[in-house]
Write a protein that binds this DNA or RNA. Structure first.
Length: 280
DNA sequence: TTATTTAACTTACCCGTGAG
DNA sequence: CTCACGGGTAAGTTAAATAA
């Protein structure tokens, strides 16, 4: 296996690396890289990304090329008068695959945390319906029967008929999430909170709106994910397949969050306008 | 090994568009 | 007009890569 001394064309100050020829993006070039000196090729780097690099030299002794890369880097740095240790990585180890399992299990832990039940309970059952002793109907019991928990252990209940109607009316997960929000939150709550309560970085002076009720929010998001088939953690045993599953789940989660954020923003905007009209 | 740097990912926010 | 959504921004957080 031969090594390539690479001059990264997009890097300033100039940086150099020694890479194995199997990092050439174009696999057909890997077997015979001898003609590549002086040419610019795409080199695979981190996280599946590739960058253009000029091939300066080819050799089988990695050490020699690394020393050369160091010298070039020092020279480049002094020319640019920039304090820089500008030699990018040597040959990377093959421990990357080992890391994947860690990543997957870490994702699972995150998921577990996201699904953690909260102690927020809403729509608590009215006590007034309690039936007296005897053979009369227990209304509280009847009332409870009609309600369903949106997501297991979420403590968020709503009439099953409402849920059924919302499901029928919602053809997409983002719409389902929005409609559930409308059902579970008042206009006041929606217009005075943000989804996660995080600070807005785009506008430093802005006071961040508080986070909306976490219990109901998570119940909605988890319910919609479940409806989309993302409830159960991956069990295929196939690391790659699990990765795809988690990625798809993450994308859906992002879409839902984005849509809900936008819903709250639009409600907020509307309320600000109506207040303004009230005042003037 | 630990510390530092770098890259990717998030999230609130803004704007425009298009369907109904 | 309302609603849904895509594209984009800034800068904070997180995770990975690299240096020491």
């Amino acid at each position: 296996m031969s090594y390539l001394l690479i001059d990264w064309v997009d890097e300033l100050p100039k940086t150099y690396s020694v890479v194995l020829c199997n990092r050439l993006e174009d696999e057909s070039l890997r077997s015979d890289p001898s003609k590549l000196v002086g040419k610019t090729v795409q080199i695979l780097w981190n996280r599946g990304k590739s960058y253009p690099g000029l091939v300066l030299k080819i050799g089988t002794d990695e050490e020699v090329l690394v020393r050369e890369a160091d010298e070039l880097a020092i020279k480049a740095a002094s020319e640019n008068q920039v304090v820089s240790t500008s030699r990018r990585g040597k040959k990377r180890g093959a421990d990357r695959a080992d890391k994947i399992e860690e990543i997957v299990s870490a994702s699972l832990r995150l998921e577990e945390e996201a699904n953690r039940p909260t102690d927020t309970t809403i729509n608590s059952i009215d006590e007034v319906g309690t039936a007296p002793e005897g053979d009369s109907i227990n209304y509280e019991e009847k009332y409870r029967e009609l309600k369903v928990e949106l997501y297991p252990d979420s403590g968020v209940f709503l009439p099953s008929s409402d849920l059924a109607a919302i499901k029928i009316a919602s053809n997409k997960p983002t719409v389902l999430a929005r409609n559930l929000f409308r059902r579970l939150f008042s206009i006041e709550e929606m217009s005075s909170h943000s989804l996660f309560g995080k600070k807005c970085n785009a506008n430093q002076g802005q006071v961040p709106l508080p986070e909306i009720d976490v219990g109901r929010r998570n119940a909605v998001i988890n319910y919609v994910l479940k409806e989309e088939g993302f409830d159960a953690p991956p069990t295929t045993g196939n690391i790659e397949a699990d990765g795809i599953f988690l990625k798809a789940k993450k994308t859906t989660h992002k879409e839902i969050s984005k849509s809900l954020t936008e819903l709250l923003r639009q409600e907020h905007k509307q309320r600000v306008i109506s207040n303004y009209r009230l005042v003037t």
